[in-house]
Design a protein around this nucleic acid. Structure first.
Lengths: 209, 209
DNA sequence: ACCAATGTAAACTGACCGGTTCAGTATCGA
DNA sequence: TCGATACTGAACCGGTCAGTTTACATTGGT
């Protein structure tokens, strides 16, 4: 009794299991990953794994949750700088591009898209602690710029997402559809500079609405 | 002999099979779709299905190819209009938004992202006849606008992709991660208007670079 | 030394899936 | 009407996988 079906027990090798599961899920996706291989990679017996997690599905959800937390914590470190909006935006653009080009970013994105249909709450959780979180951080900065009279933005949320999307121009699709996965510094610089230029053309003070 | 492993035989119920396969693949993904169910949905025996297609993988690839062709053909109909760039861009933006919000667009995108890793050529094929094709069409229009002296664009390819990405602002992520799938006319209008405004702020003649 | 908790290895179950086979039926042109 | 071809339905095979069970080993506190 008193055994909720979604209970997750902690134990000595809990982190081992989660790490192994992350590696296998990231490289194989949900369906492609077998529990036997996860146990093998984690250096743990299948029985131990199942003594921690009730089933594969909850193990997967826990992996994604942990990764989202990790990403949020890391992102919180690098925030506002006391510099011109242009410099801050350039910096942010670099971070955005670097992330979705990275192996990790590609895998997380691929899995989140692929499994959102099967796991309704997964998509929401990933969205909130991923893209939505980034947009929120950026929105706060933009709001400050408006208060300082440097930018003029009527819809800050939309503007923040526009900026993020401008950073995806010409790269994201090629990454997502596995057409090209490594990019030269010039290719990245071209996109970053283009994103900042287009964004500022619209929202910097002294430009027509 | 003389039986290439990748041969696809035509037959009376070929289209039935392809249609059924499309439905099931679109709603379940590649791994999630079982051949038995495809045959059932197609109203065809499994044996007939396997008399057309050598295996599940090639059936899937053929479904995607057919969908890409269909999409390209349909897109070719609605092209340039003799109107202001603003009107044309608004029209294009509506089409872009409507597509990736549609059930079909969501499914195709999800599967292309999910299976690009497993099927290397699939991602490329989808990319070329999807996003890349759209960008090319748009690029030609932008080029004409530049020649007419209405727009000033140094990097037409980048600009075209920027426009497409601006149309994704604030909607695409929510769609891709299954957070929200239906949108009001106002929500769409906000994104479309924002995309056109930002794009023209950067590239219309008489604005600072 | 003992016990209880924790972990291990491996076999096992039941279900599902891709693909094959085959005996029988429907269709259609000559 | 005949015969070739296409299609059916169901059984079947080999394999994989999630999840369970069992019998044994390790560890640590008292």
């Amino acid at each position: 009794m008193n055994k909720p079906a979604n209970a997750i027990r902690r134990g000595r090798k809990y982190d081992q299991v989660l790490d192994g599961a992350r590696d296998v899920f990231m490289s194989c996706g949900y369906e492609g990953a077998s529990v036997d291989e996860i146990a093998r990679v984690a250096g743990v017996s299948k029985a131990t794994l199942y003594s921690y997690f009730p089933d594969k599905r909850l193990l997967f959800l826990e992996v994604v949750r942990a990764e989202c937390r990790r990403q949020v914590d890391e992102a919180r470190k690098v925030v506002d700088i006391d510099a011109s909006p242009e410099a801050v935006l350039r910096h942010a653009a670099r971070r955005i591009v670097d992330f979705y080009i990275s192996d990790f970013g590609r895998n997380v994105h691929r899995i989140a898209v692929a499994e959102s249909a099967r796991f309704p709450e997964l998509g929401r959780e990933f969205y909130l602690s991923g893209p939505a979180f980034a947009r929120e951080q950026l929105g706060e900065f933009l709001q400050a710029c408006c208060a300082a009279g440097v930018l003029v933005i009527d819809d800050v949320n939309l503007a923040a997402d526009q900026f993020v999307m401008l950073c995806h121009a010409d790269l994201a699709d090629r990454v997502n559809f596995n057409v090209q996965t490594v990019f030269s510094g010039d290719e990245i610089e071209r996109v970053v500079a283009g994103a900042v230029a287009t964004f500022l053309a619209r929202y910097r003070v002294g430009t027509a609405p």
